[in-house]
């Protein structure tokens, strides 16, 4: 599958999700979700635990089977595609669990990011996270939580993705690392659109162009301007 040429290069719609319904077995998690992501946007998803935020990202990334609905990227249908295929198209998912391949070194983790994309420019991705440069030979299992998050994002950046789906990136991290990630996200946004699931409202308010609030599997609000993207407003949905 060739990359989606022209993705995130203009200002138009990059990703569109319509009528999305997803279940885990008998338990329905997402109900008729509609959203859209513009090229070069940073969109945040907020909501309580269990609201369906992670499920939404996993569904877009192809890890879950949809009951119904459509997901398109630059009008290319993503439904039914394998997750690895979607990743190769330039839509990368960074999971919440901060599980790097612990038995592999940092460099080997990056090598795997290069495996499918054939992008071996590790300097470019570690420029965002200079700390990783000194840790290339270290087994990833010995990294701190913040370093693991950096590695997961760096790994996902190989291949120049056009859309990054990042699940709770700052959970459990020190404030200094959160500040660093905030700057990195702003920098990344120059070349890619970002969808971030996040509970850290100051971060959301600092970087998001739009915010979707989810509650019990439904989108209950869309905050689309700076005046409404405020911590006190977002807090109502947590």
């Amino acid at each position: 599958m060739p990359p989606l040429d022209g993705m995130a290069t203009g200002t138009g719609e990059l990703l569109a999700v319509t009528g999305l319904n997803v279940s885990y077995g008998e338990s329905k998690v997402l109900f008729d979700v509609n959203l859209h992501i513009g090229a070069n946007e940073i969109v945040a998803c907020v909501g309580r635990n269990g609201a369906g935020k992670s499920t939404l990202l996993k569904s877009i990334a192809g890890f879950l089977k949809l009951n119904s609905g459509t997901v398109t990227c630059n009008r290319v249908n993503l439904v039914g595609r394998m997750s690895y295929d979607i990743a190769k198209m330039g839509i990368k998912y960074v999971p919440q669990d901060k599980k790097v391949f612990s038995d592999l070194t940092v460099q080997e983790n990056l090598e795997l990011g290069s495996y499918a994309t054939k992008d071996y420019n590790w300097d470019r991705v570690t420029d965002y996270f200079p700390k990783l440069k000194a840790l290339m030979e270290r087994k990833a299992g010995f990294l701190s939580g913040g370093e693991r998050q950096m590695l997961m994002i760096a790994r996902a950046l190989l291949g120049h993705p056009k859309l990054l789906l990042i699940d709770e990136p700052t959970e459990g991290l020190a404030p200094s690392i959160v500040s660093h990630l905030r700057e990195v996200f702003r920098e990344l946004n120059k070349a890619a659109a970002l969808v971030i699931v996040e509970q850290n409202l100051p971060l959301v308010c600092a970087i998001a162009n739009r915010v979707y609030a989810l509650k019990e599997g439904r989108i209950v609000a869309e905050l689309a301007d700076a005046a409404s993207i405020r911590a006190d407003v977002c807090e109502k949905y947590l």
């Binding site: 990334a61 890890f63 394998m82 997750s83 690895y84 295929d85 990743a87 190769k88 990368k92 998912y93 999971p95 599980k99 391949f101 612990s102 038995d103 592999l104 080997e108 983790n109 090598e111 795997l112 990011g113 495996y115 499918a116 994309t117 790994r155 996902a156 291949g159």
Partner: peptide, 20 residues
């Protein structure tokens, strides 16, 4: 290395665009 990574977490390997 991809097989070793897959032994740890198949989903994460697939998320990197690798055909598991």
């Amino acid at each position: 290395k991809a097989i070793r990574a897959g032994i740890e977490n198949v989903e994460h390997v697939e998320g990197l665009g690798i055909n598991v």
